[in-house]
């Protein structure tokens, strides 16, 4: 039992990221409002970003900028820069793709008068 609890405590942040990710996934599947689907997508992406950045953490490490007092001989002295780079670009790209999604939703609203998925489907069937 103690071992199980210790294992849970070690991986606690992963469970938190999975929970956030599943909240976003649920919003993307179950919500009928297209804007709420986009919010779900944002929550999902946030979970992925947290997941990646936590991979690069090192106990007692500095930010990934050279500290003249430490030098660069020991990689364990600095946090892993690679996940941070990947997520830096992912954040900006996610903002840009969200803009495209909002543009599409605006056109859907203009053409069918609603952003509720079932309402749009009903109007398409009626035509």
């Amino acid at each position: 039992m103690g071992g199980l609890l210790a294992g849970f405590a070690d991986a606690f942040h992963y469970y938190a990221y999975f929970a956030i990710m599943m909240i976003g996934l649920f919003a993307m599947i179950a919500k009928t409002n297209l804007l709420k689907k986009c919010i779900g997508l944002g929550i999902f992406q946030t979970a992925i970003m947290l997941f990646y950045v936590s991979m690069g953490a090192k106990t007692g490490a500095d930010i990934p900028i050279v500290n003249p007092a430490t030098g660069t001989a020991d990689p364990a002295a600095y946090a892993n820069p690679l996940p941070q780079v990947l997520m830096l670009t992912a954040i900006v790209v996610s903002v840009a793709t969200l803009g495209v999604a909002l543009a599409l939703i605006q056109n859907i609203h203009r053409d069918s008068g609603s952003i509720e998925e079932d309402e749009i489907l009903r109007r398409l069937r009626d035509e």
Binding site: D10, A11, H13, Y14, S54, M55, A57, K58, T59, G60, A61, P75, A76
Partner: peptide
């Protein structure tokens, strides 16, 4: 199976 938090 994922690495522990802060594992260098």
């Amino acid at each position: 199976d994922f690495p522990r938090l802060g594992d260098a």
